[in-house]
């Protein structure tokens, strides 16, 4: 018993010192962590701010309505933002139905088994394949084997494959969030599986699916490497034929096969020129790109917040 009470004052001092040392280490780490976080965040904010500063002088209405030019001061992003819009249209039309269909199958239809396992492993793996590899696939498959050439269609399909895993994973999460009582209620009323999916699951998980689609699209908008690989031109001083026209047949699909450029490629082209005047254009194009992706992501975050607030199962 007595040994507990007989801790020498010297030993107590030692222990206090030890405790103090450990507390000091604790506080040191808190500071190190804060500093690391600030370095990462501030480096990025500073870079974005200087990008805005560099490109500000070129962000005029003419910048959006001019074709690229050999003179930096006249060059604009008309052909590239039109190209981006058309490519995104194809991407969305291809990736959204395919991704949602795949997710519905995996979440609602798939039976436990080897085929399902293989599909699941492939979806996970595809998400980890570097984007430029999709470009090589598209170069071999779309451009040459299917003969689509270096067209809007080939680019849109390439990006659709690239964002497919994103759409599948987020749609599955949205479907999983619908409680199984909803499914059981639909079945109890005699609904078939597809009736249950199309009348109940899809409407209820709409918001979550939309969030995933927007995040996927915002990734596709900034992708450069796979589009360069399929041979998108970097200097386009004309627009693809318009998809809609005033005279019959009103809608045409020539634009699908037109050569094109997109915003990130235009920016890449300007960055890699030695003339510093073009760097200003690149900065301005970069600002446009960042604003576009931030708006899309901001909208997705807002949507997610709204869903969380309104839906209470």
């Amino acid at each position: 018993m007595s040994s507990y009470t007989q801790i020498s004052p010297q030993r107590i001092e030692e222990m206090r010192a030890l405790i103090g040392q450990r507390k000091l280490r604790d506080h040191m780490f808190a500071i190190v962590g804060l500093v690391c976080m600030l370095i990462a965040v501030l480096t990025m904010i500073a870079s974005f701010a200087s990008l805005l500063f560099d490109g500000w002088s070129r962000l005029t209405p003419e910048f959006f309505t001019s074709f690229p030019s050999r003179r930096a001061a006249d060059a604009g992003i008309l052909s590239s933002w039109v190209g981006t819009t058309l490519v995104m249209l194809v991407t969305m039309l291809a990736a959204v139905p395919l991704g949602i269909g795949a997710a519905i199958y995996l979440e609602e239809y798939a039976k436990q088994g080897i085929v399902t396992d293989i599909i699941e492993v492939n979806v996970t793996n595809l998400a980890g394949v570097p984007s430029i590899i999709y470009g090589l696939l598209a170069l071999g498959l779309f451009v040459y084997i299917l003969g689509l050439g270096e067209s809007v269609l080939a680019a849109g399909l390439t990006l659709a494959l690239l964002i497919l895993p994103v759409v599948i994973v987020s749609t599955r999460e949205a479907l999983r969030a619908v409680p199984s009582t909803i499914r059981e209620a639909a079945y109890a009323l005699g609904a078939t599986r597809w009736q249950m999916v199309s009348d109940h699951l899809l409407p209820y998980s709409r918001g979550g699916i939309l969030t995933g689609v927007i995040i996927g699209m915002s990734r596709a908008i900034g992708e450069t490497a796979p589009i360069i690989t399929i041979g998108a031109l970097t200097f386009i001083a004309f627009l693809p034929p318009s998809p809609v026209s005033a005279e019959p047949p009103f809608i045409n699909f020539d634009w699908l096969f037109a050569p094109f450029t997109v915003l990130p490629i235009q920016m890449f082209n300007w960055v890699s020129r030695p003339d510093p005047a073009f760097a200003v254009n690149a900065a301005a194009a970069g600002v446009v790109l960042i604003v576009m992706t931030l708006l899309m992501n901001g909208f997705a975050i807002y949507l997610r917040y709204q869903i969380r607030k309104t839906i209470k199962w």
């Binding site: 139905p97 795949a102 599909i119 696939l137």
Partner: peptide, 26 residues
Amino acid sequence: ERVIESILFLMAFSAVAITVAILAIL
């Protein structure tokens, strides 16, 4: 129902097809 299930299966199977296509082309 059967037709819809088959279509959905093909959509899900596209993930496998893409992987195979990537490896085949390369």
